[in-house]
Amino acid sequence: MRRSLRKLAMGLFFVGPWVIGFLGFTLYPMVMSAYYSLTNYNLVNPPKYIGWNNYIRLLQMDPQFKTAIGNTMYMVLFGLPIWLFVALVMAVLLNEKGKLTTFFRTLFYLPSVVPTVAASVLWMWVLNPQYGIVNTLLKSLGFSGPGWFTDPKWSKPGLILMGAWATGGTMIIFLAGLQNVPEALYESAELDGAGWWRKLVHITLPILTPTIFFNLIMGMISTFQYFTQAFVISRGAGSNVPPGGPLGSTLFYAIYLYQNAFSYLRMGYAAAMAWLLFIVILVSTLLLFRSSGKWVHYDT
């Protein structure tokens, strides 16, 4: 008994800093944020309780909120799968025997160490409709490139393209997963006459499912909070332009939330948005976990 008490004390001593941080920087703010979400609060005057009005207004009366959800879902449903796919293809290519593997690994990985703001600024110029390198190359092939970040239809594809360029972190995780596949499995499959494609589909991918699942979860959580790239690029359109343009096509959830909090000082409204976001992330994560039983293989 005394020993386990002593252990408890020792354990708490070590995890103490985190517990204090958790209480002060996570739990307390969570409680307060739930409270603010039921108030009208502009940071200067004290919060005024207004019940569920913020939520009602968000869900029923705010077209911007709908736009923000639409844009964010677009990224989760189209952007994220594309990014994961590109990362997976890169990883598979690097896992093959071949010349200059280290060189290519470094090259593929490099974009993801470029600071996000620098990368965003760079891509504004890479995708400049008139003088950017992508449209120039397209033109030399006989295509006329789109307006990218100046065109509401092409701004999100532009962001997805940029994200695909910088997907090196995910790629490395895939690569680590690939290197865990036991060589013996391939060898026995080869004896059965399996080709490259069959080995990929029947051995590699199933074994990789936990890694795919992990990347999917992490990717989803961060895509729901997609912010910096779109913020930098859309505000870069002019020195007095609010973020989210053109035509609200890059108004993502986190951007609209930020604007509410810090441009309009609608702190209560922003807190309500944050809680809705949290609930969506929670539910999506749970759904993914429940579905994982069907397609994620934890054996071997």
Binding site: Q130, G147, F149, P152, P246
Partner: peptide, 13 residues
């Protein structure tokens, strides 16, 4: 769209 494309190619104010 066409006007915006033109504007995106303009230089520093």
């Amino acid at each position: 769209q066409v006007v915006q494309e033109f504007i995106s190619g303009l230089g520093n104010y």
